[in-house]
């Protein structure tokens, strides 16, 4: 079953001469355990596609289905709950809350669901331990390295057990070694936990973990090819 279905999705801004079509009639299906890499130049509309698929922006036309639910028909009040329970986000600039420790940052989505703080912190601790950050639980983001921040951000993205992870330039601010660690992490999330991972990036190294690579340009899918996942993945062997 496809976890994510994007059906004839378009997004335009402005009208008349000032009209800009950021996304044009895009369709896409992503199944469980699959990693999709969307690549393209800056301004090609790939981040707009990601934000619409992530329920953060309304399309001009077309639909997005997440586990069979048409999210484009959900109201502004219903969308936060969908994001909280079905989706996880990994950001380029980590977007950790500066006042909170690593553990508290990871606990945040659980707190949003109404879980008791102690229980949320315990679950966040387990999640961070899986990412090798058991010795960084009580550190503020300012005391963490770039790689550690991205691992905390990823732990936060999956702590609520979402079906789909959306990652926006997850390796952009990281050196090659740490970038590779993050790639491994995303690969493991897809293969071991059978989540769908949609990555938007300029970083061609990410092709190594992708099942499919989609070239995006001027708001459209220009081409699609197989990634190198089968050759490099250590998790499915």
């Amino acid at each position: 079953m496809a976890l994510l279905v994007i059906d004839k999705l378009s997004k335009s801004y402005g009208t008349g001469h000032t009209k800009v079509e950021a996304v044009k009639n895009v369709s896409l299906r992503v199944v469980a355990g699959e990693i999709i890499l969307i690549m393209g130049p800056s301004g090609s509309g790939k981040t707009t596609l990601l934000t619409i698929a992530g329920g953060l922006l309304k399309p001009t036309s077309g639909h997005v289905y997440i586990e069979g639910t048409c999210t484009t028909r959900l109201t502004e009040k219903e969308l936060p709950h969908l994001r909280l329970t079905k989706l996880g986000f990994v950001f380029q600039s980590f977007n950790l809350l500066g006042a909170l420790t690593a553990q508290e940052n990871v606990a945040l989505p659980l707190i949003a669901t109404g879980m008791a703080r102690a229980q949320a912190l315990a679950k966040a601790k387990q999640s961070l331990e899986k990412f090798g950050l058991s010795n960084r639980l009580h550190h503020l983001p300012s005391a963490l390295s770039g790689g550690e921040k991205q691992r905390v951000s990823t732990a936060r993205a999956i702590v609520n057990d979402p079906a789909i992870i959306f990652a926006d330039e997850p390796t952009a601010n990281l050196d090659s070694k740490i970038g590779h660690e993050v790639m491994e992490m995303l690969c493991a999330i897809a293969c071991r936990e059978q989540r769908a991972v949609v990555i938007v990036s300029h970083d061609q190294r990410l092709e190594e973990i992708a099942h499919r690579v989609i070239e995006f340009e001027d708001g459209e899918i220009k081409s699609e090819r197989a990634g190198k996942h089968g050759k490099t993945c250590q998790h499915t062997r």
Binding site: P80, L82, R83, N95, A112
Partner: peptide
């Protein structure tokens, strides 16, 4: 504002 935006993106409601 950005942190509040992040919280909204994660799923916190208004």
């Amino acid at each position: 504002a950005r942190e509040y935006g992040v919280m909204k993106a994660i799923g916190f409601n208004n």
